[in-house]
Amino acid sequence: MPAEGAANVMIEAPRLEPRDLEGPGGVRVEVVSRTFAGRRGLVPALDGMTLRAEPGEIVAVVGPSGCGKTTLLELICGLQRPDSGEIESAPAALMPQRDLLLPWLGTLDNAGLALRVRGVSRSAARLQAAPWLERFGLAGFEKARPAELSGGMRQRVSFLRTLLAGKPVLALDEPFAALDAITRAEMQAWLGHVLETEPRTVVLVTHDVEEAVILADRVVVMSARPGKAVASIDVRLARPRRRTDPDVVALRERALEVLGVAA
């Protein structure tokens, strides 16, 4: 099974030293509201959204399209300010839904972008990014431009780029939504293993309930727009999880029920 193949690569790869992270790193979003001025008047994106992530916890946020999930991540990353409510978060780096790799850079330089925009020299950024490529299944593609990579590889480069930003909180915005089903399953297994060896506080936004249950410690379900948390489901299951495990299936059904989708 391809997912397990990817998993084996991860286990055999050398573990790297723990990285310097900026502070302990939890996330606290307290009754936050955010409204945008749209073409047809005001569009409330979030209304009284509350979310907490303990340091090291993986929290998945699921909800219908347009429920303000991306807004939530941008608030956590400090790219927007809430109209009301309170946000307290350790420094967070974004991983966008589209890979947004720079088409003129090779894999190594794309992975090191976070370092470059902070003023690290090219050679130092490459030195720091290079040991990760093998672990991320990208060895031999150091100089390959994004156009030469598969969709799964591009998402791995994109994730590595966010990881190398060196922030304790990762804000992942539907990272695998654009991938085909097989690649997505591989990437979910792969991400699970990366996060085991490289623990971070993760807020994972997704519309894929199954992905949420497989990866997260806790699943927060959001309402339709204006979004707010309507349920928090603890996922106390051993890893790695399989989508066919009865417990996984049961939790998935529960989350879908909260979302109002008939099972």
Binding site: E74, C77, G78, L79, P91, A92, A93, L94, P96, L100, L102, L113, A114, R116, V117, R118, G119, A165, A171
Partner: peptide, 17 residues
């Protein structure tokens, strides 16, 4: 936005992106 979440300065984001 992505580059800003990496703490990129205005000038460096301009130069690199």
């Amino acid at each position: 936005k992505l580059s800003r979440s990496f703490d990129g300065s205005r000038l460096r984001i301009f130069r690199h992106v």
